[in-house]
Design a protein around this nucleic acid. Structure first.
Lengths: 183, 183
DNA sequence: CCGAAACCTGTCCGATCGGTCAGACCCTGA
DNA sequence: TCAGGGTCTGACCGATCGGACAGGTTTCGG
């Protein structure tokens, strides 16, 4: 009786939910969608899990725990050593839990497909090329995406900071990340 | 076109929708919520706009148009001049349309409040401090948020790139953005 | 003063959501 | 053989969603 020989329904549910949450977001995925992907009834999901939130919680538990472990590791370092360790640790964390992180942003793609955002995708694509100086090296692409995704977050999270000051520091940081000459 | 003597119902709807969309996301805001904030009936919204999507479209139209203008401006530049212009143009664009950009990420905060993400907010806060070396200068904070928001996007948008390679280039770009010594 | 257009409301609709429930179908150990 | 726990289903529920519709009220030009 090896418990992990065949994929149990429970594991199939988690796998399907992970895929669907990452593709269409948490809100954008209904229990019916998951049940359809697994090939069982919606009631079967709710037999194995105490609701939709419980599925999400179990799916993200390893990622959250790893985040907590990183936090504990960084807390033991002094102010000098903490910065490079935080950078490497964060990048590693995100890369290790790519799928889980994608769940967080999963609702955005569907939003971008609405008529209000018609053409924005192509604009973003060209902006990404402009940020790399129309180069295609992995280094340039990754840096461009870092700026593309980071600037809005930096602006959103600091709504009270003066726009002029924010502009100056963000342009400088972004240019450094991109290795733009003269920065 | 209506003359803007006092705020018309139509303008009140747009203002309330902008506020609510940014706070709770597009999906997270119902027509009933908007109507309640404005102080009118749900049917009144649908008299002034052809559905929920139309409200979003009108709300974001100026931002999309500005994005398009930036795209046209960048297209006329050569590969050398385009990079610094793209950086400044993008930062300016996002800062000018902070509210509109926030709508895109609006669904995330509510998601983060679910039990699955219990404690993650505090972890993120401490990680931000670690990335700045526990400093509080605006430059360091903005750079940390740029990295915090940019790394997941860079990982998500390049799912096929080898993790090891992505790790190396992201660590380097992030460290440069943060101005970490020895990068 | 009147009729039409603009504005707004209450009410209703079909669809879909997350979730509940009684019962049926196994498989297994006594 | 039968009892019982684990598994799963179909039917159903209340709530909420975006939206449609008929009709009432206000405003305004002729």
């Amino acid at each position: 009786m090896s418990r992990s020989a065949r994929p149990s329904t429970r594991e199939e549910i988690l796998a399907a939910a992970s895929r669907l949450f990452a593709a269409a977001g948490f809100k954008g995925t209904s229990l019916q969608d998951i049940a359809g992907a697994v090939g069982c009834s919606k009631a079967a999901l709710l037999y194995h899990f105490d609701g939709k939130d419980a599925i999400l919680a179990e799916l993200l538990a390893p990622a959250v725990e790893a985040f907590r472990a990183l936090d504990a590791r960084l807390a033991a370092l002094d102010d000098e050593a903490v910065r490079p360790a935080a950078v490497e640790g964060y990048v590693d964390l995100v890369l290790r839990f790519r799928r889980e992180v994608t769940v967080l942003y999963g609702d955005i793609p569907e939003l971008l497909q609405r008529p209000a955002f018609a053409g924005v995708h192509e604009l973003t694509e060209r902006l990404r090329e402009a940020l790399t100086g129309r180069s295609r090296t992995p280094q340039a692409c990754a840096a461009a995406l870092l700026v593309l995704g980071g600037v809005p977050v930096a602006c959103m999270e600091q709504p009270d900071v003066d726009a002029g000051e924010l502009r100056e520091v963000l342009v400088r940081s972004a240019a450094r990340a991109l290795d733009v000459p003269g920065s």
